[in-house]
Simulated scan of single mutants.
Amino acid sequence: MLIVSDIDDIFLPTPDSLLVNLHESKELIKDLLNALPNMFTNTRETHSALGPALQAAFKLMSPTGGRISVFQTQLPSLGAGLLHSREDPNQRSSTKVKTSLITHFRRL
Rank of each mutant, 00 (worst) to 15 (best):
G51T: 03
E45V: 11
E24V: 07
L33I: 10
G51S: 05
D9V: 12
R106E: 11
A57D: 03
S5R: 11
K98H: 10
L28R: 06
S69K: 11
E24H: 04
V97K: 04
L50F: 01
G81H: 00
M61H: 00
T14V: 14
N38L: 05
K30A: 04
R86F: 01
L12G: 07
D6P: 15
L50A: 07
R67T: 15
K59C: 12
T41L: 10
T46F: 01
L18K: 03
L108I: 10
K59H: 09
L82M: 12
S85N: 09
P89T: 00
D8A: 14
K98S: 15
F11K: 13
Q55A: 06
A53V: 05
S69W: 15
P52Y: 00
E27I: 11
G79K: 04
D8E: 13
F11Y: 13
T64N: 04
E24I: 06
A57K: 02
F11N: 14
S94N: 08
F11A: 15
L60W: 01
F105D: 12
I3T: 14
E27H: 05
L50H: 01
I7Y: 06
G65A: 02
S93F: 04
I102W: 02
H47C: 11
T46I: 15
P52C: 05
A35K: 01
V20L: 08
L33K: 01
I68C: 14
F71I: 13
Q74V: 13
L60T: 06
L82S: 14
F11T: 15
A53K: 01
I102R: 04
K26C: 09
S85E: 12
N34I: 15
G65E: 03
T99P: 00
S85Q: 08
L75C: 07
N34W: 06
D16M: 05
H23F: 07
R67M: 11
A35H: 03
K30W: 02
L19K: 03
R67S: 14
G51I: 05
G65F: 03
D6L: 02
D8G: 13
T95G: 03
S25L: 03
E45D: 09
E87M: 09
V4H: 04
R44L: 08
V4F: 04
A57Y: 00
G81Q: 02
H84G: 06
I10C: 10
L83R: 08
S93W: 01
R92V: 14
S69N: 15
S25C: 14
K98M: 10
K26I: 14
E27G: 00
L36P: 04
